[in-house]
Deep mutational scan, measured.
Amino acid sequence: MVVWDEDGFQGRRHEFTAECPSVLELGFETVRSLKVLSGAWVGFEHAGFQGQQYILERGEYPSWDAWGGNTAYPAERLTSFRP
């Protein structure tokens, strides 16, 4: 999975191949867009795999509404991930 700290695949970029309990440890404040290259990941609103969670299947997510636009409580950012 590849993530960016700005919408539209802009800004700082990082690629994950294993779980990440906090993007803050990588110098990111948040993740605002992402691409899942294969498989599925779970993205969490807060560090430590806490808060609202989203199943992220293979594909592109250019902004928060692409992963959470249909929920009652959409998270505008993700800060931890698990494959």
Rank of each mutant, 00 (worst) to 15 (best):
M1C: 14
M1I: 15
V2L: 07
V2N: 08
V2K: 01
V2D: 01
V2F: 05
V3W: 00
V3S: 01
D5V: 05
D5F: 11
D5H: 04
D5G: 03
D7M: 06
G8E: 09
G8M: 07
G8L: 06
F9S: 01
Q10K: 15
G11C: 02
G11F: 02
G11Y: 04
G11Q: 01
R13C: 13
R13D: 04
R13W: 08
H14P: 00
E15V: 09
E15S: 10
E15R: 06
E15T: 15
E15I: 09
E15M: 10
F16I: 15
F16E: 00
T17A: 08
T17L: 07
A18W: 11
E19D: 08
E19S: 08
E19Q: 10
C20N: 00
C20M: 15
C20A: 04
C20S: 01
C20D: 02
P21M: 08
P21C: 12
P21E: 14
P21G: 15
S22Q: 04
S22R: 00
V23D: 00
L24W: 06
L24A: 15
L24R: 11
E25G: 08
E25I: 15
L26P: 04
L26R: 05
L26V: 07
L26K: 08
F28H: 03
E29V: 03
E29M: 11
T30I: 05
V31E: 00
R32C: 07
R32F: 01
L34Q: 03
L34Y: 02
K35R: 07
K35G: 01
V36P: 00
L37G: 04
L37I: 10
L37R: 05
L37T: 06
L37Q: 07
S38T: 12
S38D: 15
S38K: 14
S38F: 06
G39W: 01
G39N: 05
A40M: 09
A40D: 12
A40I: 12
W41Y: 06
W41Q: 01
V42N: 03
V42L: 07
V42I: 12
G43D: 02
G43Y: 03
G43F: 08
F44V: 02
F44R: 03
F44C: 05
F44E: 03
E45Y: 03
E45A: 07
H46E: 15
A47G: 07
A47V: 11
A47Q: 10
A47N: 10
G48D: 11
G48P: 02
F49V: 01
Q50K: 13
Q50E: 15
G51T: 07
G51D: 04
Q52L: 07
Q52D: 12
Q52G: 09
Y54I: 12
Y54T: 09
L56C: 03
E57T: 10
E57C: 06
E57F: 10
R58F: 08
G59Q: 04
G59E: 03
G59R: 03
G59K: 02
G59L: 00
E60N: 14
E60Q: 14
E60F: 05
E60M: 06
Y61Q: 02
Y61V: 03
Y61L: 01
P62F: 10
P62Y: 07
P62I: 04
P62G: 09
P62V: 06
S63F: 06
S63N: 09
W64A: 13
W64Q: 11
W64K: 14
D65M: 12
D65S: 15
A66G: 06
W67A: 08
W67V: 09
W67D: 04
G68W: 05
G69P: 06
N70H: 10
N70R: 15
A72R: 11
A72W: 07
Y73T: 13
Y73C: 14
Y73N: 08
P74Q: 14
A75E: 07
A75C: 13
A75Y: 15
E76Y: 11
R77L: 14
R77M: 14
R77A: 15
L78W: 00
